[in-house]
Nucleic acid binder design. Structure first.
Lengths: 204, 204
DNA sequence: GTCTATAACTCGATAGAC
DNA sequence: GTCTATCGAGTTATAGAC
C-alpha cells in the first residue's frame, strides 16, 4: 500500500458528530462545543477543519438532503406501470426514512427558516423529476385508468402518508405507548399499508 | 364600573409577542430582546412578568398545544355516523391549521426535543378521546361497515393527510411555485379532498 | 410596574505554542 | 494537525432608581 487511508479520520469524525448534533438540535440549537466533544477533539480544531458553524452546517445539510431525495428518482424514471411505481415509491421512501428518521424534521425545519436557500441549492435537480411523475399521474387520469382528482393533491397525499409518521414519531410513541421495536414494526407494516390505501382510493 | 380591565395589558402583549416569536423561531432561536421589542417594553420588564425564558416558553407551549388538539374532541364525542365524523374531523382540523399554520412545526419540533415533558403535561386529556375514536373505527370494521385494516394505521393516515401539508408548506410553496393565495385555495380544496380520499379507500 | 445600567454567562471564533 | 488560553459579541438575567 502506497497510501495509508486513515479510516477514522478527524474530518470524518467531525462530520459524523456534526450530523448527529445538527439532526437532533437543528442549526440554532447545536453547539460547536458539543460537536467537538462528540468528535473527541476541541473547538479550535473544529474551526480549523470548517472555518465556521455556517460552513459546517451547510456541508451537513447538503449531505443529508442529497440523500433524502434522489433514490426516488430511480423509481419515477423506471418504466413500471403507475400502480407499481406508487408501491415502490412509498415503500422505498419509508424504508429510507426508517434508517434516517431524524431527516424529515431536520430538513423541514431548516427549509422552514430558509426557504429561498433551499430552492436555489437543492430543488433544481429534484423538481423536474417529481413534476414528470405528477404529469404521468394526470395522463392516467385522462385515460380513465384511475379516478379523476387533482394530481397535485394526490401527490401531496402520497408524501404526507410516507413522511409524516417520522416527523410525529416521538409524539406517536408517547401517545400510543409504542416502544422503538413496536414502532419499527408498525412502520414495516406501513410499507404495504400506505400504497394499498392509496391505490384502493384511486382505482376504478 | 368598579374595576377597570386594562384590555391590552402588558402581560397580554408579552404573551402575544412571545407567541409570535416562539412560533417562528422555536425555543432556541427566540430572543428575549425580540419579544420585548414586539411587546413594546424592555427586557427587564419581561423578566419581571416571567422570571426567565424557560417559564415564558412553558406558558406559550401550554397555550398553543392546548389549542392544538381539543377542538377535535367535540367532533369525536358527537353522535354522527363514522363517515360524517371523518369528514368533520378533517375539515375542522385543516381549518384550524389554516389559521395557525406555524403550530404543527412548533409543537412537533419541541415534542421532538422534550417528548417526556409533553407526555406528562399535555397528553392526559387528549389521549382517551382519541383512543375512543380509534375504538369506534374498529367496531365499524367488525360490523363490516368499512374495509378491515389496522385502525391505528387508518388514524395515522388521517392526521398525516391533514397536518403534513402545513409542516411542508414552505417546501411545497417553493417547489410548486404557489403563492400564499394559491396555497390557501389549495388547502381549501383539501377540506373536501382529504375526507373523500379516505372514505373512497375504506368504504365497502 | 417600568425603566436604565450592568453583571453574569454562553458561545463562536482566533492567537499562538507545540 | 492539534492543543491551551482567551477574546469579544450577543444574550439572559438582576440591581436599583423612579
Amino acid at each position: 500500500m502506497v497510501k495509508t487511508e486513515k479510516i477514522d479520520s478527524t474530518q470524518e469524525r467531525i462530520l459524523a458528530a456534526a450530523k448527529r448534533v445538527f439532526l437532533e438540535q437543528g442549526m440554532a440549537g447545536a453547539r460547536m462545543q458539543d460537536i467537538a466533544d462528540k468528535a473527541g477533539i476541541n473547538k479550535a480544531l473544529l474551526h480549523y477543519y470548517f472555518r465556521n458553524k455556517d460552513k459546517l452546517f451547510e456541508t451537513i445539510f447538503k449531505e443529508v438532503s442529497s440523500q433524502f431525495f434522489p433514490k426516488i428518482t430511480d423509481v419515477i424514471e423506471s418504466d413500471m406501470p403507475l400502480f407499481g411505481k406508487i408501491e415502490r415509491f412509498c415503500s422505498e421512501y419509508i424504508d429510507m426514512l426508517q434508517k434516517n428518521s431524524f431527516m424529515p424534521m431536520f430538513v423541514l425545519s431548516e427549509v422552514h427558516k430558509q426557504p429561498q436557500r433551499f430552492k436555489e441549492r437543492f430543488w433544481k435537480n429534484m423538481g423536474p423529476v417529481l413534476a414528470r411523475f405528477v404529469g404521468e399521474i394526470e395522463v392516467e387520469m385522462k385515460k380513465n385508468k384511475i379516478k379523476k382528482m387533482s394530481a397535485g393533491q394526490l401527490f401531496l397525499n402520497m408524501v404526507s402518508l410516507c413522511i409524516f409518521p417520522f416527523i410525529a414519531k416521538p409524539l406517536w410513541m408517547v401517545s400510543s405507548g409504542m416502544d422503538e421495536a413496536r414502532f419499527k414494526q408498525f412502520m414495516e407494516e406501513r410499507k404495504k399499508e400506505v400504497p394499498k390505501f392509496i391505490i384502493e382510493s384511486i382505482k376504478n
